[in-house]
């Protein structure tokens, strides 16, 4: 597991590898709070993205995680929650 957790840079790389980028969108712009739909990614692109994140980071996301997390910031938070060590009881 990378020490820095799941970053926007990692998400952008995985989006590009798995689904490319829309010509009308600059992924290097301020996209953290822009909805994936507006970034040109439909549900299948997010499914592919989720699968790649799971493979690379060795986690299992809930089926609903990708529909609930509608922006890069929300998805990054969900992934990082999975990456955090479970607090001791």
């Amino acid at each position: 597991m990378p020490a820095t957790g799941f970053t926007l840079e990692a998400l952008k790389r995985i989006l590009l590898e798995g689904a490319g980028a829309s010509e009308e969108v600059d992924l290097d712009g301020d996209i953290l709070d822009v909805e994936f739909d507006a970034l040109g990614y439909e549900s299948l692109a997010l499914l592919e993205t989720g699968g790649r994140i799971e493979r690379e980071f060795g986690i299992a996301l809930d089926d609903s995680a990708l529909t609930v997390a509608r922006t890069p910031r929300a998805l990054i938070d969900v992934v990082n929650a999975h990456l955090s060590p479970t607090p001791a009881a």
Binding site: E17, A19, G20, A21, S22, E23, G40, L44, A45, E48
Partner: peptide, 8 residues
């Protein structure tokens, strides 16, 4: 073609 279409 746009890059969005290549992986799919």
């Amino acid at each position: 073609l746009p890059s969005r279409l290549i992986p799919q």
